[in-house]
Design a protein around this nucleic acid. Structure first.
Lengths: 135, 135
DNA sequence: CGGGATCCGGCTTGATACTG
DNA sequence: CAGTATCAAGCCGGATCCCG
């Protein structure tokens, strides 16, 4: 809402990419999922249900604002379910929806695959840097 | 190289996230892969080998600079192979490495899954907006 | 505790122009 | 054609304050 934004309630990482969102609607959701905090949040929630500040601890380095935005975006996309209890102090639990679990599963498959091949990547990087970085 | 950057030859989307790259090396590669242009580029290259400007056409909306940076990052990670021929005019072809194909495959699996469920997502979004966006 | 609103700095991006 | 250098602008993301 800082500038020319007015219609969209939540954006997170879309504002500048409306063009693409229009051309390909899934792009927006994909950005939420694969984005930095989205991926980490899905990864955390894949292991169970957590409260806001529990998630903050698990998703290391995230600020309240970004976690809040990320959760809203994922909730809006139907990947995360938010359960608020009007107790005092308030208690809010977040968990993945069935769809969210499926998405998280595929995402984690990709992540784990890449992590499993990091040694190859590291070798490739060194070669690349040795050839071009030297000069 | 705009400011405090000096050691890393190529960054694309890392400069600000060094902290995380340090904590989890795969994070950087993941960002290259799942990032906006990275994903589109891998998707395009998954279908075959292409020249620079061919890719520019296929990856709609990408600027020369971003395509160049993206390709360099992916090449550095060992996911893309660059074949330059010293002819005149110069001809450079890009194609996925075997590792790149595996990664692209999993990425596309995720993307296609999300695209296949976009109707669910859209419904969820409308419900969400109806409840909270109304006011 | 759970989260919304605001301010602000810095990185990322996108045109443009130039080289080989 | 295949890129690189420069420049300006814009968005992301963090810190802070505040409310329920």
């Amino acid at each position: 809402m800082t500038s020319t934004d007015s219609a969209a309630p939540v954006s997170v990482t879309d504002s500048a990419y409306d063009v693409f969102a229009r051309a390909c609607p899934s792009r927006g959701t994909l950005e939420h999922v694969t984005g930095r905090w989205g991926a980490l949040t899905l990864g955390a929630l894949h292991e169970g249900s957590f409260r806001f500040n529990e998630l903050r601890r698990r998703v290391d380095g995230v600020s309240e604002k970004m976690l809040s935005q990320t959760l809203q975006a994922l909730e809006r996309d139907g990947l995360v379910h938010r359960e608020a209890q009007p107790t005092n102090p308030p208690r809010v639990d977040y968990e993945l929806t069935p769809l969210g679990h499926e998405v998280a599963g595929r995402l984690l498959a990709l992540i784990e695959f890449v992590e499993g091949r990091m040694d190859d990547v590291l070798v490739a990087r060194e070669r690349y840097d040795a050839e071009r970085g030297g000069r």
